[in-house]
Design a protein around this nucleic acid. Structure first.
Lengths: 341, 341
DNA sequence: CTGTTAGCGCCTTCAA
DNA sequence: TTGAAGGCGCTAACAG
């Protein structure tokens, strides 16, 4: 199959017996042009169904008005929300968006960056993959002076703007909530320990404990690799403990969901035996039984803000100096922590 | 902020004292070239960190190796899966992807098409918005000979290839299942009646009834506008019926989920009082209480297949004659229809 | 084996 | 008020 022919300025020019530059001027409503000529050209363009070739335009002005986006996973509801916010805001500002997913692989992340750069996107928005443990590709972007921002999964040492959630605050809120409903032994189930959010949420967890005068207990911090098997293994491990926790805060909702299902299958009552909370506010968490207490992160807002700031920088409205934008999270208390005493 | 400069062939040429065409040839590994020259050029290109400008390349060869995708909603898990499949398969075949969402609006759908066409995508994959009730924009694409395929939300009269699920079959499966577990009065909750899937799933529903010798009963077909309010209104309506159904098949999972939640809040036991089933197999449906019987649609596979076929057509491997690819669905029986007698 | 030339579609001086 | 010329970065036919 071959693509049909697109009308070009040249053809309009020939048809009307004028030069291509006149067409160009007429179509961008240049004032220095006879109104009558302009009218005729605009009319003819419409009649011939002329559509400007963005490729040629971009090549000429060396700007594509396109942003590149890299996320770990499109199928994650959270990242889908971010993308949605990015797109909407980009469109508002007259930009298009090219989206790639890294599938949580460093290698793909690097390949995606390369593709997007080759496609001459004006700037990038990146959320790092779980595998990303070195950052040369990002420093290279920086050195090549290709504007970009990091969002959600960020790396602190890269000198670009970052948009994140107040992870410490969110984890603090939820831990505090567990303590307030009466939990005495609150556990934190963390993801891989080198992940940014693992660290930040642990920080919030410890902060709440400290505030309530509860001593840190290493046996009350478990680590999962975030796979289903890993999550369920941790859930089972907890059941085997001599002294079980009476409240558990999972770093992310999917872990909490799998723990909850496993425990229910073992006859554990939630929240009576163990209260359980997550973080992210996935759609699933609201409908599971019992509904899961969690912390909501406005992904759509995050996407919008990231684009706004990035374009402000591009347009010179905002300074090029990197800033850190921190979005607040909201505790969503549900039945999984509603201990009636 | 201004974007940093990108190295061009011209610069490599000047540095090495050869012509630009020689550079071009070396970089695409042309055989008619002195190996030594080639070596030097490739080396220098790497040293200068040369990256080809896809824009210029595309303009020259008038092919972008980019596909445009339009979906109603990225945040829907099903469409996210499709996108994921589209991207993966496109990458395998050396294509990039630009994604747009219509947010279920016809106007945005039209605007998206325009943008993607202006960006010179080689072809499009489109899933129609709910609002789309006329099809001039698609016929225009067709007339302009821009290759495209429709997937999931299709319109039958457009002479292009379509990828769909066997909706009739899926609805038949799930209705039959309800009848087999002992339901006597099976209801179908439909979406807006002009939607393709509303019609097709009704067809499957009726087919199963007929096969079981059950007469069609108009009072056992309800229509929702698919909003939360609409869904809950229908749920409540059913409770008010003198003769309630004992089994209900909802056109899509989200409807079933909202019905289920409303009924539970009213003290209805599922499946004992009324058995309930959906269609789509959203992640939510597996964790709700009771887990929802539904029909799974492999979105990722759909995306992959749509791209494969489209690119086969583009590459002349497949005929340009439109075909219809129909994917089979799978019944996922869960507790919401597990009536123990 | 390599350079010259021409042009993809568009925009923008510079002249007229 | 309009046209001619040059060039964005790259490829490809045509000469040598």
């Amino acid at each position: 199959m071959k693509k049909g022919h697109q009308v070009t300025m040249k053809e309009i020019a020939k048809k009307l017996g004028v030069s291509v530059s006149t067409i160009s001027r007429a179509l961008k409503d240049s004032p220095e042009l006879h109104p009558e000529t302009k009218r005729k050209i605009v009319e003819m363009a419409k009649e011939m169904n002329y559509q400007p070739n963005l490729l040629a335009q971009s090549l000429r002005i060396s700007r594509t008005k396109t942003l590149g986006v890299i996320v770990p996973e499109i199928t994650s509801h959270f990242f889908a929300s971010c993308i949605s916010g990015i797109q909407d805001q980009a469109n508002v500002r007259g930009y298009n968006v090219m989206i790639c997913q890294s599938n949580e692989h460093l290698e793909l992340e690097i390949a995606n960056i390369k593709t997007l750069v080759a496609s001459q996107v004006d700037a990038l928005l990146i959320s790092l993959s779980r595998e990303t443990n070195h950052y040369e590709h990002l420093f290279e972007l920086y050195n090549r002076e290709i504007p970009f921002v990091l969002f959600d999964r960020v790396q602190e040492d890269i000198p670009v703007s970052k948009v994140t959630f107040n992870d410490v605050g969110g984890a603090y809120q939820v831990t505090k909530h567990l303590l307030e409903v009466g939990c005495k032994r609150v556990m934190y189930i963390s993801g891989p320990e080198d992940l940014y959010i693992s660290k930040k949420r642990k920080e919030g967890y410890l902060k709440a404990l400290a505030e309530f005068g509860v001593a840190e207990d290493p046996s009350l911090i478990k680590v999962t690799d975030l796979t289903s098997e890993g999550n369920i293994a941790v859930a089972e491990e907890i059941l085997q403990m001599k002294e079980r926790p009476d409240g558990v805060f999972c770093m992310i909702d999917p872990v909490a969901v799998e723990v909850l299902i496993h425990w229910k299958s073992q006859g554990i009552k939630i929240p009576q035996d163990i209260a359980l909370a997550g973080f992210t506010n996935n759609p699933t968490s609201a409908v599971i039984e019992p509904p899961l207490t969690t912390v909501s992160q406005p992904g759509y807002e995050m996407g919008k803000l990231a684009v706004s700031h990035l374009l402000d920088q591009l347009d010179g409205i905002a300074s090029d100096d990197p800033i850190s934008i921190v979005l607040e999270t909201t505790l969503i208390p549900r039945q999984s922590t509603q201990i009636s005493k």
